[in-house]
Amino acid sequence: MSTAPQDGPPPGGVLGAFGAPAGPVPLSGGQRTVWRAGDVVLKRLDVSLEELGWQEEVLTAVDGAPDVRVAPPVRSRDGELVVAGWTAWRFEPGTAPTPDGYPDVVAAGRVLHRHLAHLPRPALLDRRDHPWARADRIAWGEAAAGAVGDLPHVGALLAARDAVDAAAQVVHGDLTDNVHLHPDLPPLVLDLTGYWRPPAYASAVVVADAVVFRGADLALVDRVGEEEGPQFPQLLLRALLFRALTDQLLAPGTEWARWFGPAVSRVLTLT
């Protein structure tokens, strides 16, 4: 979940509370909403306090794994997770993938999900009501589409939706821009956005994002589909629905068919 861009760096009092040095610099891709100060990354609180606490618990348990890196939140000197609306996270090195690097993003997600497989379903998922949560429920048939279901590409995907027989677990539902790679270190997974879905669905969201928004070739659909198995087309269909519905809920009346058209055509062929 994200918020509207906030101007300005974290103030000195926030930096001091988290033990961060002065002179924070904006991180690339953060629209000047994410700032680094020494070994600390600071950003505005963009989830509920309940969800932030859950992220801390989960990420702390995974931290130190030999095959994947995470960056748990940093508490203030007074033991708080939030100071004046700001949160802090440990800085870890890495760079975002190039358009041909999304197979590595998918692979990193699989590793992370092996570490999350034992977790119970968090009750906080039932209390989330932002556009991403509503779009997820519609994509999986747990809520009605309403007027957005009349859009051509959305209606076609809804009509092609079929049952999926795959076990759900806690997954990171927004891996695409939140996996950073390093030549000498395990992949870094940031900003845990929890959903209760099959792990291969998280891979499908990466593929949908990559081919619709990030310039990846449609061959990525076939490559990841071969790795994930015969249910992948239905998972990719839901991933495309999830992104298309979220866009419509965030910007009603906007038509995204030009972006989604090629990927929708491909998945309809597969299904």
Rank of each mutant, 00 (worst) to 15 (best):
A239R: 00
S265P: 00
A156L: 11
L236R: 06
R69F: 03
G225S: 12
R90G: 15
G194V: 15
G19M: 08
L15H: 01
R243A: 04
L52A: 08
A167W: 02
V212D: 09
T87L: 04
L249D: 02
M1K: 12
G225E: 03
A163C: 05
A216C: 08
T176K: 00
E80T: 02
H180A: 12
L158I: 03
S76H: 12
P21W: 05
L270G: 02
R161G: 05
R266E: 15
A210T: 02
A65P: 10
M1T: 13
D39H: 13
R161P: 01
R127D: 15
R121H: 01
S76Q: 13
V83G: 03
P5H: 09
P120M: 01
G215Y: 01
V211H: 00
L175K: 05
P66E: 14
A204G: 06
G149E: 07
L218F: 02
G53M: 02
D78T: 13
L237G: 10
D184Y: 04
F260T: 02
G146F: 02
T271E: 06
T60G: 15
G19L: 07
D104G: 12
G64P: 11
V70P: 07
Y102S: 03
R214K: 12
R197T: 06
G225H: 07
E80D: 14
H172P: 01
G13V: 02
V148D: 05
S2H: 13
R266K: 12
T33E: 14
W256Q: 09
H113M: 03
P152S: 10
A145E: 03
G141C: 03
V47L: 11
D222E: 15
S265K: 13
E51C: 00
K43N: 08
G79P: 08
G146A: 01
A219G: 14
A163P: 03
G38K: 06
W259K: 10
G261K: 08
V148L: 11
D165F: 04
A107V: 01
A144D: 15
R266G: 01
L240F: 00
G64I: 11
E227Q: 15
